[in-house]
């Protein structure tokens, strides 16, 4: 306590992990990955009214510059492998939000001959956003949940085996 009292007022103390996570979660660039009608809601979420940019999330047109993949729409079986390739092209650490019923589980088109029942059959998913399609508020909530999850990550002390901590 004595040490803190000697510091000037403009200084803040924090943990290194928290600061790293805070910087990372505040520039979460998401890849444009609109597959169906959910993409329209994703555009609205990125637009001025809902403004995902205020959380530091801006759209990117290439997986090479992205931290987050928002899978927005029906994933067809033909697209499944391409999705995996795009996910592998993203630099680590990377996250996935599955947006809408279709990418969660196939949704309305689950039994259709060409539809993959859930993007989690192909790539790991961090946050599932329900809805058909989810409103921009729901996607924003999903992003905030992901930020919460990111804040719990440890970078200095790596635990063996466990990759990412589960959301509390």
């Amino acid at each position: 306590m004595s040490l803190l009292n000697t510091m000037p007022e403009f200084m803040v103390t924090t943990k290194v992990d928290e600061m790293l996570n805070w910087t990372r979660k505040s520039s979460l660039w998401y890849m444009l990955f609109g597959l169906a009608c959910c993409a329209i809601e994703m555009m609205q979420t990125g637009g001025p009214r809902s403004d995902l940019d205020r959380f530091g999330a801006v759209p990117r047109a290439t997986p090479r510059q992205s931290d987050l993949m928002i899978v927005a729409g029906t994933l067809t079986l033909k697209m499944a492998l391409r999705t995996k390739v795009l996910y592998e092209q993203m630099p680590d650490p990377k996250y996935v939000i599955s947006m809408g019923s279709c990418s969660n589980c196939g949704g309305l088109f689950q039994l259709a001959y060409s539809v993959c029942d859930g993007v989690d059959k192909v790539i790991p998913v961090d946050v599932y956003v329900p809805g058909c399609p989810p409103r921009p508020e729901a996607l924003t909530e999903g992003l905030l949940k992901l930020q919460e999850k990111m804040m719990q990550e440890k970078w200095l002390v790596r635990s063996t085996g466990e990759s990412r901590p589960a959301l509390a």
Binding site: L77, A80, L81, L111, Y113, S114, V122
Partner: peptide, 16 residues
């Protein structure tokens, strides 16, 4: 006669 609930296999990279 295509079965309504037929599931198609998920294609892997080795397949393509």
């Amino acid at each position: 006669d295509y079965p309504k609930e037929k599931r198609q296999p998920l294609v892997t990279r080795a397949d393509v």
